[in-house]
Design a protein around this nucleic acid. Structure first.
Lengths: 158, 158
DNA sequence: TGCTTCTTTTGAATCAGTCAAGGAAAGAGC
DNA sequence: GCTCTTTCCTTGACTGATTCAAAAGAAGCA
């Protein structure tokens, strides 16, 4: 539950320095934003970053998110029908529970054990590198309220 | 491997009739297009449908894809970074292998057995209805050619 | 400090997908 | 086969997320 990355999970600047990336306040702010809002979409990250840096361009945030994802400091997830979302918990092969109704995303630990936690029944010659698991359902709140209306819509999409 | 749906896998018109949907040539053509091009994106479906119906609007195809997905005749999948793709193999809880390099998608049967084939380690109070598994890797072709260049890019995104 | 290279800003463009209104066609009943 | 009602398709404009490109600005090395 503590720093899973390379021992720098809590210090964005240090994390950046360990890569060959320049340490800019924009990138630090993006890392902090994602740390503070797990599974945030780009829009939320921009809003959050502008809390400390009111003038950042959306482009800078897009660039940062891409770059940081590329070097492995962030992970990008995109459940069907959702925009890109980012998280800092990387390298532990965890998966996600997604609410079909409100879009809430919650982490779940690997179903079986260690990565790769799953092996396809046949791999069609692929060099398989990772398994990504998304559990679809209803979060507690949505399951309680309006479960009838939702259930209809859901039956068909499974 | 044969008709998995309700015994009408090969006859689009019959499949439509079993739902309460009207049998229009546009919908039949969309079903045929997806049957003939599994995992096709909307753009490809449009192109394919226009082979037999040169004047269909893209809107008609979008509508048909949505409607057919809603009634369960199609399934929509959207691997991260990809546009929506559709397939007709439904109800058998199979999963997908996706090539990170060229985007090729291949079906794989359910890893463990029957649906729901996976149960999260803890469900955070969710009412879990389905597990979607995506295996990421390199298809045989991409693994052969230019594997060095790709490997770099990939190492970071797992 | 000065220089080089990488980043960010600015502003416009692209692309998938959606909205809305009117015309067209499917299917039910006669 | 004909008519009516309801559902579906066409047209054309629009939205929202993301990307492109050029020029200005900062980071880090010598």
């Amino acid at each position: 539950m503590n720093g899973t990355n390379h021992g720098h999970a809590e210090d964005p600047a240090a994390a950046l320095r360990q890569t060959s990336l320049r340490v800019t306040k924009q990138r630090v702010a993006v890392l902090e934003a994602v740390r503070d809002h797990p599974h945030a979409d780009t829009e939320s990250v921009i809003r959050s970053v502008r809390g400390s840096l009111p003038t950042v361009s959306h482009q800078a945030v897009y660039d940062s998110l891409h770059t940081l994802t590329e070097v492995g400091l962030l992970r990008c997830i995109q459940p069907s029908g959702s925009v890109a979302r980012y998280e800092r918990r990387i390298g532990d092969n965890h998966h996600h529970l997604v609410c079909r109704s409100c879009g809430l995303i919650v982490d779940v630990d690997c179903t079986v054990g260690h990565a790769p936690c799953l092996v396809p029944s046949h791999d069609a010659g692929f060099r398989v590198e990772a398994a990504e698991v998304t559990f679809w359902g209803l979060c507690p709140d949505c399951a309680d309220s309006g479960s009838a209306a939702d259930t209809d819509r859901l039956a068909s999409s499974v």
